[in-house]
């Protein structure tokens, strides 16, 4: 994690490293923020545009929502950083179990 202090005697090294890291971090956040605004606009347009049927719009904006969740988790909640392996593993495992369960219900159990 970027906030951690480095074990260097020279305070300048630490500060410069952190400044560089922070700048990079900021750039990522701005880019993903712009992308998220853009995706939100697309979602609004898709709903507003009357030519598209509901069968296209609903899955489409759900897909966009999924992308937004990923942005949120990885860039704003810092899941792209080191030290998040266990939460990631559990989230993925939970998603797989939930997905398989729902797949099961919809395909073979409720006919």
């Amino acid at each position: 994690m970027t906030n951690e202090q480095l074990n260097s005697g020279n305070p300048r090294v630490d500060i410069e490293y952190r400044r560089k890291k922070n700048a990079e971090e900021m750039r990522h956040q701005v880019i993903s923020f712009a992308l998220m605004i853009f995706l939100t606009l697309i979602a609004f347009v898709a709903v507003a545009y009357e030519e598209f049927s509901g069968w296209f719009v609903v899955p489409f904006i759900l897909l966009l929502a999924g992308v937004q969740v990923i942005f949120q988790l990885f860039y704003f909640m810092h899941m792209s950083h080191k030290g998040h392996e266990a939460p990631k593993l559990f989230m993925y495992a939970g998603m797989v179990v939930a997905f398989v369960t729902i797949l099961c219900y919809t395909t073979i159990i409720w006919w």
């Binding site: 495992a93 398989v100 099961c104 073979i108 159990i109 006919w111």
Partner: peptide, 24 residues
């Protein structure tokens, strides 16, 4: 642990889920 989540319906074979569900 993982497979344990994929087998619950074997308690319900006679509930009438149909041959495909039962086989899987």
């Amino acid at each position: 642990g993982f497979l344990g989540f994929m087998v619950w319906a074997h308690h319900m074979f006679t509930t009438g889920l149909g041959p495909i569900a039962n086989s899987i």
